[in-house]
Design a protein around this nucleic acid. Structure first.
Lengths: 195, 195
DNA sequence: TTTTTAAAAACTAACCGTTAGTGCTACGGT
DNA sequence: ACCGTAGCACTAACGGTTAGTTTTTAAAAA
């Protein structure tokens, strides 16, 4: 199905990557707010309109590969072994994501995000989107008989766990703590618990 | 403490109210995106800079009294009778807030919010702020011995409940469902549960 | 190969939210 | 009555974003 990518698509991808790389470099060098869209476009040697044809907003330049994040979450649900229960699988993936984000190499980026209200806000919206995808994946699992509301709730709780852990002094311990709570919540939503 | 408000303060408050009223009216008449800041300022007969001295952003014009929301949430925790457990008190207040927001009279406003990405995003940020306040209030209660992480988690969960319920087909049932889960999560975070 | 098409990128010019700088007016404390 | 200052107006701009249009260039048709 995936035909060998033609020159056109390769060039497009290259342009996109060049823009993203340039943007991140400038942002880290001079600070997110100190770098304008016009600066990024000039340094990447593209027109401003070209930049916006690849990225929907300035913030999107920073969260370039957020689709990975989303896929990893849903895959943790849809791709788990048939006998593995939902919550531990989710916990494992969230833990991996938290480790990934709190690694030393990622620190400058997250410092930048924390310092910019606009980036923080953008990330919040992303997280909500991810929670929705996750909720859909959970609701689609035939082995889990829960209400739509319960599925959406645990999805949000899992994203909350990720978010809280990233801010916590001991991120891994925070994942443990919150997922212990989520496990109980998920149990309480099981059909046999409801009158 | 509250001295009789002088003319100056009354005028200021009147200006603020006039701006907010005008803005909401125009937004509902013509749509949020179709109305510019300059339109609102002109119709309210104030300068654009005056408008921004009363409201930090265009979105803030819509969520004029969001501090009420925050106070009601924290009060539900700090002002409850000494023998009332946390979660039911929280549930009661969230239910009241959901009822308030899903009332027919509020429908046009929330439709407008749902249709504007910018307003949705702004509300998400607000909710996160509210969750933080709520977490602080919960953590400050001497009767509840839980970790900081657990307090922050239930606060987020409660806000999630509000958010999910507002979108649910049956909002009140959704509050019930999610709070049953929250109750279990809170129990699981109790000190005696931890090894 | 040549021609045709359509995507990708460029350029211009603006729109809109937001802010800085500045000065005027009128209320409140003395 | 007098002065300090809070509230507001005004101009001008900045920075993200978009519309409209035109040029390039890869891919498909001839």
């Amino acid at each position: 199905m995936t035909a060998p990518p033609g020159r056109r698509e390769r060039k497009k991808a290259a342009t996109r990557q060049k823009i993203a790389d340039t943007a991140l470099r400038l942002f880290l060098e001079r600070g997110y707010d100190a770098v304008g869209i016009r600066d990024v476009a000039a340094e990447a040697d593209v027109a401003v309109t070209t930049l916006f044809s690849h990225f929907a907003s300035k913030e999107a330049l920073v969260f370039e590969q957020d689709e990975d994040f989303e896929r990893r979450l849903t895959r943790a649900v849809t791709g788990r072994t048939p006998d593995e229960p939902l919550i531990p699988a989710l916990r494992r993936e969230v833990l991996a994501l938290v480790r990934h984000c709190t690694a030393d190499s990622a620190a400058p980026i997250w410092r930048m995000v924390d310092e910019s209200p606009s980036l923080r806000s953008y990330e919040e919206s992303m997280r909500l989107r991810h929670a929705e995808s996750l909720a859909a994946a959970i609701a689609a699992d035939p082995g889990l008989s829960r209400t739509t509301t319960a599925c959406r709730a645990v999805a949000r709780f899992a994203i909350d766990a990720y978010s809280l852990a990233r801010e916590a002094a001991d991120p891994e311990a925070a994942v443990d703590d919150v997922f212990r709570m989520i496990e109980a919540a998920w149990e309480a939503a099981s059909p046999s618990q409801r009158g």
